[in-house]
Design a protein around this nucleic acid. Sequence first.
DNA 1: CGGTTTTGCCGCCGATTCTGCGGCCGACCC
DNA 2: GGGTCGGCCGCAGAATCGGCGGCAAAACCG
Lengths: 154, 154
Amino acid sequence: MTDGLDRVDRQILRILQREGRIPNVELAERVGLSPTATGERLRRLQKDGVITGFGARLDPQRLGLSLLVFVEVSLDKTTPDAFARFAAAVRRAPEVLECHMVGGGFDYLVKARVADMPAYRRFLGEGLLALPGVNNTRTYAVMEEVKSDGVLPL
Amino acid sequence: MTDGLDRVDRQILRILQREGRIPNVELAERVGLSPTATGERLRRLQKDGVITGFGARLDPQRLGLSLLVFVEVSLDKTTPDAFARFAAAVRRAPEVLECHMVGGGFDYLVKARVADMPAYRRFLGEGLLALPGVNNTRTYAVMEEVKSDGVLPL
DNA sequence: CGGTTTTGCCGCCGATTCTGCGGCCGACCC
DNA sequence: GGGTCGGCCGCAGAATCGGCGGCAAAACCG
């Protein structure tokens, strides 16, 4: 059940990762199946949760979000529910694109986009550091995005 | 030209980020415009580069990629073209979802997905450490993905 | 301030795409 | 051999797409 994907399924996923809005008929002729069979596979892949959704890729620059930063966050270990409260607050913060709990020298790795350095200072001061339990942060500003697509290998 | 987006444009982008495959007619009635006008805006947003593409979101677990890791990479500063060669190699590596050049204690931050720890060891040894100019790496394994969508604020 | 251009929207309509249905074929199992 | 089942196909009605002409309000200009 976890991996009942044949060659055609994988090809469909590979195409849809990059061209999510391709019409079903064109997808069908690319994988060499009829539109009906292809649509059926697509529906099944969504129902089974392999495909969790579709989305538009936007250019952050054109939206005034020129600065990409990664922040390593350390929490006080004293309060046990601090983790849950931090996680909840982070999910509400629109600047935060991703947040991962990691094992190692710190607790959370946050990926965020803001307009510029002043905006980041504001986000750091009023957003992150204001959260209870936040002990220490270390910021890395991205100078160049070498690879950004995030396409999964198949 | 960089920011000629009105309220309706932003609403379109907000919807399409989460539901990229929504039919144009439904998008139209959600933003309160006719399908023709909505389609025209969509076409313009793509032509202007605000929308760079559409893609399917896949569940990494169901594809056998259960381990998400972040790797901080330091390069030898001796060879000046080492940066370009590292960047080129990283773009070819399928496990690497993202790679950013950062300012701070190290040079590159790499986000990668692999099947499990043995697969990561292989990727680290044969993929990253084999690259010329790589001086030092530090790995952080993700224990929990608190927020992963990467949706931009509008 | 009046006229003109521009811009953005709508309704319409032919072409394309989608989707549910019935039928076909090969694999598999008694 | 006979039955069952999963996967694919073709078809047809319904929905959607995309280009065209018209219209009204805003912007522009003399």
